[in-house]
Design a binder for these strands. Structure first.
Ligand SMILES: [Mn+2]
Ligand SMILES: [Mn+2]
Ligand SMILES: [Zn+2]
Ligand SMILES: [Zn+2]
Lengths: 130, 130
DNA sequence: AATATACTAGTAATAGTTATCATTAAGGAG
DNA sequence: CTCCTTAATGATAACTATTACTAGTATATT
């Protein structure tokens, strides 16, 4: 894996985020620093960075993948109205059962995804006003 | 909501499944009984059936939505090799923390999604052979 | 400096899903 | 049962997110 300016700018821009931007959101921000970059390059590098464990690719509900500068295992809340994704505190850990012993199977478990969904604080407040 | 033959055949076909078919898998099976049905009708009815709580739409990892004849809350395992989705036993319930009190927030929590992923038993066995 | 090749920009292609619209058929009223 | 309103359908186009392709460029190794 070579160190290109594109890759490092994409990573830097992602690391300024506390939320979980989509590829096209990152694309438009990165373009402010590298106006000639192409969307494909953004996707390609996000893929590499996540498969090498530097960042994390989130495949939650909704139709767009999200990218997380924090590759540590943690949980998320997704607002079904505004599509925002919020982090849940990293020390919040649920003790998940061993499904292989429960079901007498020999799967290889690589990980889990736990997502809460509903209305975020802001959207919930807006709903009451209607 | 009117009772059309298309809707009832789609539901019947889905209910024969123990797995979690995609819209196009259901489309090809339904066409054996209703050769003139269109894919849009399948999507439209799956949407209605799930929003009325008869079935469940799954938005897990991977790029296709899956449909589940069982609308009760339960967890799934997803194989990242063959994309199969397996049910975890319905009585397997994890005690999930109240994230609002944890984070002092006023979100409205409508539900959670818990997904295990990895290699299913069959794909895990095949990997050993290579 | 020369070289091999991973990476890029630009663009085309693909896949999944949703929208449009003229036509059909549920199902309630009379 | 017949008429009527309108939800639903089939056919197709449009859309969105993502991936593939390719000739040219830039990285990093020799
Ligand atoms: Mn996160
Ligand atoms: Mn299921
Ligand atoms: Zn919101
Ligand atoms: Zn598998």
């Amino acid at each position: 894996m070579r160190n290109t300016e594109q890759k490092s700018v994409i990573l830097e821009v992602l690391q300024t985020h506390k939320d979980h931007p989509t590829a096209d959101q990152l694309y438009s921000e990165v373009r402010e620093r590298l106006p000639k970059i192409s969307l494909g390059t953004v996707y390609r590098n996000l893929e590499k960075l996540s498969s090498s464990g530097v960042i994390m690719k989130l495949e939650l509900g909704g139709n767009q993948k999200r990218f997380d500068p924090n590759p540590m295992d943690h949980y998320h809340f997704r607002c079904i109205t505004c599509s925002s994704i919020e982090d849940l505190p990293q020390d919040l850990k649920v003790d998940l059962p061993d499904i292989n012993s429960e079901t007498r199977s020999n799967r290889v478990i690589l990980g889990t995804t736990l997502e809460y969904y509903g209305y975020c604080e802001e959207c919930a407040a807006n709903k009451i006003l209607n």
